[in-house]
Simulated assay, not measured.
Amino acid sequence: MNRFKNFPMVPRVIFGAGSLDQLGEILMPKRTSSEAPFIFLVDSVFEDTDLPGRIPLLFHDQIIFISSDEEPKTEQVDALAQRIRDSFSELPSGIVGIGGGTIMDLAKAVAIMLTNKGGAADYQGWDLVKKPSIYHVGIPTISGTGAEVSRTTVLLGPEKKLGINSDSTTFDQVVLDPDLAQGVPTEQWFYTGMDCYIHCIESLSGTYLNAFSQSYGEKALELCKEVFLNNICEAESRDKLMMASWHGGMSIAYSQVGVAHAMSYGLSYSLGIRHGIGNCLIFQHLEEFYPQGVELFHEMKNKHNISLPTGICKGLSDSEYDTMIAVAMSLEPLWENAVGYDWRRTITPEKLKSIYGKI
């Protein structure tokens, strides 16, 4: 069995302030007919801004505004795909996601489900997608998740939180316009940025580490330190964090994440905790696994006056703990990367419950 992954990369990317304005010329050659629209999935926070007016609508193109207040769900993907099928006589020319990680994941998943039978939950796992997705574009408006570059789309399903990991998931085109990240609230900026930082720490500390992932992870970590520890101007910070997100996503493409992400999945599935803040809530208690990374995390948190919520798991029943732990422990590749192939010898339900209990 081959041990080396032959994975896809985003074939086209444009970077630079104002690059959103080139979207029309980017999409035009991809239009299959006047009856095959582009569907723009846009974070609803932009509904009353000037951004919708900058979207190059033609023919039957449609904007669908979507709230990103909650994690993306498999049933939401299925509903969006069905809505699009019912609205148009032809398969769309493509899907364009404009927003944060939630919108990126929805855009990737909908593009897959428009060409594959069944429901999105059927494809949660590794390499289960049978047919190539339709053309899809990612335009992040906040940086850190790496969703714009990864081959996964993480969804909450009826039984688990898990990505659709496939070669068909990766975007065909990404537009990196740092101007779109202006005005992001400080806490959201921090939590999403820490997703990138924790990507780096977990990748660089993992048993799956190799020269490919290390080269990207080290650059992403360097950029995170500049953004969150140095006093740089806002425009430079946006540029650097957008590239940190890109490099961080590339780092884990050929390795994996680790303890914080596995346990954050449990928090999200059981309690609806958003991914970025969930990572932070877990990571602050992981000195045993990432001592230097956790120390630096607290330094960044204090510099930006971030106070993490407390008492999240207070009063949970044994059954609720069991569900969180089961979701976390089901993510075997993450634990193998963090601890090694014999991870079950040291990672026990009791150990995870003790960590969750601190939150």
Rank of each mutant, 00 (worst) to 15 (best):
Ala253Leu: 13
Ala17Asp: 13
Ser307Val: 15
Glu299Lys: 12
Glu148Pro: 10
Tyr191Ala: 07
Leu80Thr: 12
Val327Asn: 02
Met28Phe: 12
Tyr356Met: 03
Lys73Gly: 07
Thr310Ala: 14
Asn210Phe: 08
Lys353His: 05
Phe15Gly: 03
Ile63Phe: 00
Leu271Gly: 03
Leu128Asp: 13
Gly272Gln: 14
Ala111Gly: 13
Asp50Ser: 06
Ala109Tyr: 07
Gly18Glu: 13
Asp122Met: 06
Ile347Ala: 00
Tyr216Pro: 00
Asp342Ile: 01
Gln292Leu: 11
Ala338Met: 06
Lys301Val: 15
Glu234Ser: 08
Pro291Leu: 11
Gln173Trp: 08
Cys313Thr: 15
Glu350Met: 03
Glu226Asn: 00
Tyr123Arg: 02
Arg274Tyr: 02
Pro140Ile: 10
Gly16Phe: 09
Gly266Met: 07
Asn165Lys: 05
Gln124Asp: 06
Met300Tyr: 08
Glu288Asn: 11
Asp43Glu: 11
Cys196Gly: 04
Pro333Trp: 04
Lys225Asn: 14
Arg3Glu: 15
Val294Gln: 09
Gly118Asp: 13
Gly97Glu: 08
Arg31Leu: 07
Glu35Ala: 14
Val174Ile: 13
Phe15Tyr: 14
Val45Arg: 05
Pro158Phe: 04
Tyr197Cys: 05
Ser307Arg: 14
Phe65Trp: 07
Ile312Thr: 08
Gln284Leu: 07
Gly315Tyr: 03
Gly266His: 02
Asp318His: 12
Asp239Gln: 13
Leu204Pro: 03
Glu332Ser: 08
Phe65Thr: 08
Pro11Lys: 12
Ser19Thr: 10
Asp69Gln: 12
His199Met: 13
Thr152Lys: 01
Asp322Ser: 12
Ile112Ala: 02
Ile26Ser: 00
Gln188Phe: 14
Ile282Pro: 05
Ser33Val: 07
His60Met: 07
Ser251Val: 00
Ser354Ile: 05
Cys280Pro: 11
Thr207Ile: 01
Gly249Cys: 10
Gly163Asn: 09
Thr141Tyr: 00
Glu336Arg: 14
Asp167Thr: 04
Glu320Gln: 15
Ser251Asp: 06
Ser133Glu: 03
Ile39His: 08
Ile134Cys: 02
Pro140Asn: 10
Asn2Asp: 12
Pro37Asp: 11
Ser205Ala: 11
Ala81Asp: 06
His199Glu: 12
Asp179Pro: 03
Glu299Tyr: 06
Glu236Gln: 11
His199Tyr: 09
Glu148Ala: 11
Leu27Met: 09
Gln214Ile: 01
Thr346Asp: 07
Trp189Tyr: 15
Lys130Asp: 15
Ile355Lys: 01
Pro185Ser: 12
Trp126Thr: 05
Glu25Leu: 12
Leu241Asn: 06
Pro349Glu: 07
Asp48Pro: 00
Ile347Gln: 02
Pro11Val: 01
Met243Arg: 11
Lys351Thr: 12
Phe46Thr: 04
Ala111Tyr: 05
Val184Lys: 00
Ile198Asp: 01
Ile95His: 10
Tyr216Glu: 02
Glu71Ser: 09
